[in-house]
Structures are given as C-alpha cells and as structure tokens.
Design a binder for these strands. Structure first.
Lengths: 250, 250
DNA sequence: AAACCTGTTCCACGATGTGGAACAGAACGT
DNA sequence: ACGTTCTGTTCCACATCGTGGAACAGGTTT
C-alpha cells in the first residue's frame, strides 16, 4: 500500500467535512505540518484542492466533479449495455444511450447490430439537441424561456428536414408527449432515421434517453413505427428500474 | 511535489476516459506494471477505483461521487452566503439554504441574525420533507406516485399543526405554486415559523431552497407575510443568477 | 504445443517522502 | 508598545517507503 496516497485521501476526506487551514488539517489527520503542506501542495497542483486567497483556507477542488461525472456516466453506460443489446436484438438495428449536456446531447455508448450495413459510432460525441430525438425529448422538459433562447441562436440546418423553428419543435414535442417516444426522419443526417424514449429517475426527471437508429432505406419498415417506438419505451423503463435498484444517482 | 500522488491521479484520469486492465493502464500512464498495480491496489482500498469481477477491468470508484457532492455543496454554500447575509439584514431573522436529499431536506448553512433570541443551527442536518417549507417546495415537483408513496409511510407529526396527509399537502402546494414561496407555521417545531422559496438552475429545475425562520412570537410581524415571502423569492432568484455565472453545476 | 499476453508477487535498492527545526509574519493579550 | 502565541513556509539530514525488474502462474491465441 502506498502511504502517501492514503494520507492524501485522509486530507481530502477531512476537507469534505469543511474547509480548513494547514494547521487544522494537520491536526485532523495526525500529520506533521510539513508533511501536510507538501501533500496539499501536490493536491493543489492537481486541482484536487484549492486555496481561498484571503483566508488561506483549503477546500476541495474541481477535479472531483470531473471524475464523479465520468464515474456516473460509466455507471449508467454499464447498466444500459444489456438493455441496449436486447433492443438491438429486437429491432436488428443499432441502439445507444445519451445524456443531456447543456444544449447538446452527449452520446455515451452504442451497441451495433449484426447487419453489415452499419451506422457510424457517435459515442463520446456532443450533438445539438434539436437535430436528434434524444435532444427533442430533453428539450420538451425545458421552461419556455430556455426553448426560446435556444431557437434564437439559429440552430444548424443539418438537412432539408431539420427542425429549426420553435413552433415546429413545439408540435414535435406535443407528438412526443402523446406517444412517449419520438421519431426523427433524416433531420440530422441524410439517409438516417432514429427513434428515442426517455429514461426517468425516481423523481420523474429525464436523466437519459435511449434510441435506435438505422439507414432510412430499411428503417423503419413500413407500418412498424409505433411497434418499434413501444419497444424503445419498454427498454427505457426497464433501464430506469435497473438504475433505481443499482442506486446510481444522477 | 509528491510523485506517487501525481501518478495516482494519472491513473484516475486514464480511467476517466474508459475502464481498462492493468497492462493497458500501465501503458497509458507510462508506468511499470508493478508500480501501476501497487498504486491501483491503494486506490481500490480507498474506493477511488473498483475492479469488475469477471473482466478484471478497473473503473472509477464511488469515492468521487462523495467528494464531488461535498465539493459542490461547499460551492453552493459559499455562493449563498452573501445572499443569506442580505436576507438576514432585511428580515432581521435567521436565513439558510438547503438541498433535497431523497425524502429529506439537507440544511447546508445558515446565517444568524443579531437578535439575542436565536434559532438553533440545523446546518448539516437532514429533516423530513413534509415538516419544513423547503421540503414542501421540493415535493411540489414530484410525480404523483412519489408523493403517494411518501405519505403511505406515515410521516411524523412533529406538532399538532404538522401536515401528514397527501390531500392537505396538495392544498399547500397549490398555494406555493400561486405565490412562489411557502410558509410553515409551527409545523416542525412549536414556536417556530419559516418561509422558503426555490432556487432554480438554468433548466428550471429546483436545485435548492432558501428560507428565513424565526420565533413565532415575533415572526412574521402581522401583515408582512407576503412582503417577506417576496424578499425570499428575490434573494433566491439573485442566488440562481450567481450560480449560473459561477458555473456551479447541480 | 508453442508463443504471447496479463496479472501477481517478491525483494534489492536508492530516490523520494519524512518530519523536526528554524524562521517570518500575523494575531492576540496585557 | 511589547511579549506571547499561532500559522504557514522552507530547509535538509535521514531512512523509510516507493520503485521497477524479474520471475512466475495461468489464460488466450496462433
């Protein structure tokens, strides 16, 4: 075991209680002041702690928000994988999961189908909300002023079919609220269709969305839009229950 | 600078990209395998990383959620302090801020008034939602089934005035939605009144609440309920704007 | 079956982390 | 104004702790 790392985490844990000066931290962690000073200087270098200018008090730094964010995204992605496999098996198309990130959709992972004609992998990428079904679901929870602000920024018209007006988006959102899922037909990329449904936490808040997409020439097969939509909704609900059981917080 | 701590954080940063095995992590961080193994064992001991049983892959552990949670609570509390001072000056009573935490309200900090007759400090404590105005605000955003579940658990009657039925709480929530703030008169503690207003993020979600409380014999002074309520709403809105400017995420 | 790769463990070694001491400056009490 | 106490910073002699190469077991791939 590496003693220095244990000691560093002792200091971080002490700071989680409340901010403190060097001498107080040394006292809380039973370390000599010079040892604590050196460890804190290193943690400061790593943005794991920061120092308030006037008071000289140490407090936890921004590094953990990034690590915790990544940790919870990884948790969510792990939980989603079996559900996405099931969905891909059912639909024979690529499925994936995303989370909202400001005005964009953050694709976490996707599960490809066996079909030789594949969809490229958008995992890790950030796509504007209006262009994809996940984003349209997230936007449907926004207050009016946020929606207004978004459309005042002239959203990109990716294809001739992209929705770029608030009015048209409200119509789309009404459809979503009616059905519980939303379809996007060649609005982001020519030749690509997709459908998504929301994943909600115990408090009813949309924390993620799962989607299926495929090439427009074969997806969806005529007359199957609502069947596929319902399958995505069911998969999203099952994932939501897994999340509650696993105690993954978002 | 402490080399071991830098190396440990290099490993953590590598894991934030995606989970990996020992050899891959050693490669990503330019460390000998034995060094990486020892550092990872220590991080595992600290719950900073965990090991998937079957695959043997390492991934970030739960420790950061706790540290990030604490870090962001500290950020929020720091931002709130000047607003709470203003509110305490205006009302001559104790003010404070809370966040929701499951079925309870987590009081972060409070700012006392100069009055010698003081309210005890609940900072750090967790109080059931139904008994305090902050909690009643949080509950007003819940889906029906969550509210139903809460009241099926026979909430504690702290005083004769405590609301313990779903029906009565819905009436209270209607009043809240009408006014933008909510009063609680001796429902939690005999002789204690309080008023709260929600703090919302850019997406319109209630992330915290701020409140003022005082002894019932002097607070509120007759005829000042709506004036004080509005003051709390304004302070909450100003805090919300500070939060957006500071980029503090919740 | 052989080659290759991963993860684990050991231990000789010396580099790094340790911690006491000294110091400057601020805060506090008289 | 002065003495005392406390905090934070820095130095450096020292030896403990962290290092990393090597060996090994077991699984995977060819």
């Amino acid at each position: 075991m590496v003693q220095s790392i244990h000691r560093a985490f002792d200091l971080l844990t002490a700071l989680a209680v409340e901010p403190a000066g060097l001498t107080e931290l040394a006292r809380r962690t039973d370390l000599p002041k010079s040892t604590a000073a050196r460890l804190l200087a290193t943690l400061q270098d790593l943005d794991a702690v920061e120092r308030a200018d006037e008071s000289g008090l140490y407090r936890l730094g921004a590094a953990f928000n990034a690590l915790a964010g990544s940790s919870s995204r990884t948790d969510l992605a792990s939980l989603a994988v079996p559900h996405l496999h099931n969905l891909t098996n059912q639909t024979s198309e690529t499925s994936g999961i995303s989370i909202p990130d400001g005005y964009r959709v953050h694709y976490l992972i996707q599960v490809d189908s066996d079909n030789p004609i594949q969809i490229r992998d958008w995992s890790g990428e950030l796509i504007p909300m209006h262009a994809v079904p996940d984003g349209q679901i997230y936007m449907s929870e926004w207050p009016d002023e946020r929606l207004e602000r978004y459309f005042s920024l002239d959203p990109v018209s990716f294809t001739a079919a992209t929705i770029t007006t608030e009015h048209a988006m409200r119509d789309r959102m009404d459809l979503f609220r009616e059905r519980g899922y939303t379809w996007v037909m060649e609005e982001f990329v020519e030749g690509l269709n997709s459908v998504a449904a929301p994943v909600k936490n115990d408090a009813g808040k949309v924390i993620a969305a799962i989607h299926v997409y495929g090439p427009a020439y074969r997806f969806p097969i005529d007359g199957t839009q609502s069947t596929i939509g319902e399958q995505v909704v069911k998969a999203a609900d099952r994932l939501a229950r897994s999340i509650v059981r696993a105690g993954v917080t978002r």
